[in-house]
């Protein structure tokens, strides 16, 4: 079988002014802009159309995402991604300057920073999936723990008072048949709704008292749905980038020995993708966490 030679894989194509692989990755990134654009558009539509008092989740003191998200962790992740963008471009630059070893070292640092981003994201996701919002059928008051409340407007335009608590489930008590008898619930310690804020203590809540109980996971609210879908898709892009970079770390020396320019070009294409992933996060950070 004769090998097919792809033209202009190193030298620039006279029409586009760049080698074909690079033009291909740019077209791919253009399609990626539309993919994330559709999700941003969805977010804006839901954000603007959300009934009062329900964004980012029912009972938030303000409409900003940082009521329920952790800005310091997101800022740390921003620093990780920005630094990884620099190490990525330095990996390519060193390869172009003929230093394979330094190029691979910078590529390895990029992979490590990408891994650090995912570890932080894991802790963020984990804290959300174990944080609960409980909405009661009516005002709740037991053992000194009172539900908070706010008057919201439903999509149908009717006024409704929501009684709720945020917190963590410490224990779920079940009967012999496995049916849930009650939850031992630890409300959040916060002063955001006024008052001095007192030390929280666990309280028993029965299923019959609960109108809705959900984690701060994707099903928690429209905002959380957007948050998990968009950051999840972005996270998958990070994973994809890591796989490609690991592939070049493990197999790069073979190509470098025979076709160093081609190898540097492949790292450049990987870099273009990686910078795009960084660029998406640069917009995600303020939009989801700060607005």
């Amino acid at each position: 079988m004769s090998a097919t030679v792809i033209p202009y894989d190193v030298k620039p194509h006279p029409l586009t002014g760049m080698y074909n692989g690079k033009f291909g990755i740019w077209l791919f990134l253009a399609s990626e802009i539309m993919l994330f654009g559709a999700l941003f558009s969805t977010y804006v539509l839901l954000r603007v159309g959300a009934p009062e008092g329900t964004w980012p989740i029912a009972g938030s003191p303000t409409t900003r995402g940082d009521n329920i998200l952790q800005v310091p962790l997101a800022a740390l992740n921003t620093a990780f991604l920005i630094t990884s963008s620099v190490t990525m471009v330095l990996a390519w630059a060193n390869l172009k300057m003929g230093s394979f070893k330094k190029g691979q070292q910078f590529l390895l640092v990029t992979v490590l920073l990408a891994g650090a981003f995912l570890v932080v994201k894991y802790f963020e996701y984990n804290s959300k999936l174990h944080h609960y919002a409980v909405t009661f059928n009516e005002h709740f008051d037991r053992d000194g723990v009172e539900s908070k409340s706010f008057k919201g407007l439903t999509q149908a335009g009717t006024e409704k008072t929501i009684h709720y608590l945020w917190g963590h489930v410490e224990e779920t008590k079940k009967d012999a048949d496995g049916a849930i008898q009650s939850y031992l619930f630890m409300p959040d310690h916060d002063t955001s709704h006024g008052g001095e804020g007192h030390e929280p203590k666990a309280v028993e809540i029965h299923p019959a008292e609960i109108a809705r109980m959900t984690t701060f996971g994707p099903g928690g609210s429209s905002f959380l749905g957007c948050y998990f879908v968009i950051t999840g898709l972005h996270g998958l892009h990070i994973v994809g980038g890591i796989v490609v970079m690991l592939w070049f770390l493990l197999t790069g020396s073979k190509m470098w020995k025979t076709q160093p320019d081609k190898y540097a070009n492949r790292i450049e294409c990987t870099g273009l993708y990686w910078h795009f992933v960084d660029l998406v996060w640069i917009f995600l950070f303020p939009v989801l966490y700060l607005l």
């Binding site: 963008s85 990525m88 870099g271 273009l272 910078h275 795009f276 960084d278 660029l279 640069i282």
Partner: peptide
């Protein structure tokens, strides 16, 4: 920030 990344890194 996006412009800086696109213009210089990309």
């Amino acid at each position: 920030k996006g412009t800086l990344v696109a213009c210089y890194f990309m």
